[in-house]
Amino acid sequence: MERDGLRHGPLGDSVLHLCIDMQELFARETPWHVPWAHRTAPSIRRVVRHRPERTAFTRFLPPETPEDMPGAWRRFYTRWAEMTRGAIDPTWLELVPVLAEFVPPALVFDKHGYSAFTAPGLGRRLRETGIDTLIVTGGETDICVWATVIGAVDRGYRVVLAADGVCSTSDATHESLLHLCRSRFSQQIEVAWIDEIVDAWR
C-alpha cells in the first residue's frame, strides 16, 4: 500500500476532521448499501476519538418526494423514489452508532447535495473558527467525499484525505480517486493513513 505521509508538515490547532455521511442509510442493507462502511467506521472512530471537539459529521438527507428537488435531482430521485424521506425508516438518516456517540462535542451538519459545502452553516463555521486544514473521512470516496475534497481545494483549504478512512461501493473508482489525488493534486491534497494522521495531529 502506498504511503505518502503528510508532506506539508504536522497538523496544528486550525484543523477540523470532516466525516462525510457515515449513516445507517449506507451502512445497512438498503438499496444504497456501502459494504465497506462498517469495516471503515472503526478506523474513522480513531480520528474522532482523538479530537471529538474538532470533528464535524455531515448527513445526507434525501427529499420527502422527488418533486421537492429541482432539475436533474428530480430525475435522480424519481429513479430512487424508495430512498426518499417519505419512503424510508427515519432511523436510516442517523449516524452509525460507533460515531454518533461523540455528538456532542462533535457537530452535525445536514446537506441535500453531494459536497459538505452544500450544508448550511458549515462554511461560516469554518471561517469563524479559523480552520485552514480539513481531514476528510467517510463515504463514498468517489461521490460525496470527492465532491467535498474538490470543493475544499477550490476554497484554499489544505486537505488530508484518510486513505483507510474512506469507503465506496466500487473498489476500482475508490482506488482511481486515491491515485488521482496523489498524481494530479499533490500540492493541495495529501493522502495519508490514519496512524500517520493521528500521530501528526498533536
Rank of each mutant, 00 (worst) to 15 (best):
22 M>Y: 07
23 Q>F: 11
24 E>Y: 04
26 F>D: 06
26 F>S: 10
27 A>Y: 02
27 A>R: 01
29 E>W: 02
30 T>V: 09
31 P>A: 13
31 P>C: 14
34 V>W: 07
34 V>S: 08
36 W>S: 13
36 W>K: 14
36 W>I: 09
37 A>W: 01
39 R>E: 15
40 T>I: 14
41 A>W: 05
43 S>V: 15
43 S>R: 12
44 I>L: 00
45 R>S: 07
45 R>A: 02
47 V>G: 10
48 V>S: 00
51 R>P: 04
51 R>W: 04
51 R>E: 06
51 R>M: 09
52 P>N: 04
52 P>E: 11
53 E>V: 02
53 E>D: 15
55 T>D: 06
55 T>A: 10
56 A>T: 09
57 F>P: 07
61 L>P: 02
64 E>P: 08
65 T>H: 04
67 E>M: 07
67 E>A: 09
67 E>Q: 08
68 D>L: 08
69 M>F: 08
69 M>E: 14
70 P>C: 08
71 G>N: 08
72 A>D: 14
77 Y>G: 05
77 Y>W: 15
77 Y>A: 09
77 Y>H: 11
78 T>N: 13
78 T>E: 15
78 T>L: 13
80 W>G: 03
81 A>Y: 09
81 A>G: 09
82 E>I: 14
82 E>V: 15
82 E>W: 12
84 T>R: 10
86 G>V: 09
87 A>W: 07
89 D>I: 03
90 P>V: 05
90 P>T: 10
91 T>C: 07
92 W>N: 06
93 L>C: 04
93 L>P: 00
93 L>S: 04
93 L>M: 01
95 L>Q: 05
97 P>G: 03
99 L>H: 00
99 L>M: 01
100 A>R: 04
102 F>H: 01
104 P>T: 06
104 P>S: 04
107 L>V: 14
107 L>F: 03
108 V>P: 03
109 F>K: 13
115 S>C: 11
115 S>M: 03
116 A>G: 14
116 A>P: 06
118 T>M: 06
119 A>C: 03
119 A>W: 03
120 P>D: 10
121 G>P: 06
123 G>Q: 01
123 G>Y: 07
124 R>T: 14
124 R>Y: 11
126 L>F: 05
127 R>D: 15
127 R>Q: 12
130 G>M: 05
131 I>L: 02
134 L>D: 09
135 I>H: 01
136 V>F: 08
136 V>T: 06
137 T>F: 00
138 G>N: 06
139 G>L: 14
139 G>S: 06
140 E>K: 15
141 T>G: 02
145 V>Y: 00
147 A>V: 14
147 A>T: 12
147 A>G: 10
148 T>Q: 13
149 V>P: 07
149 V>I: 15
149 V>D: 09
149 V>W: 05
149 V>M: 11
150 I>T: 10
151 G>E: 08
153 V>F: 09
154 D>S: 11
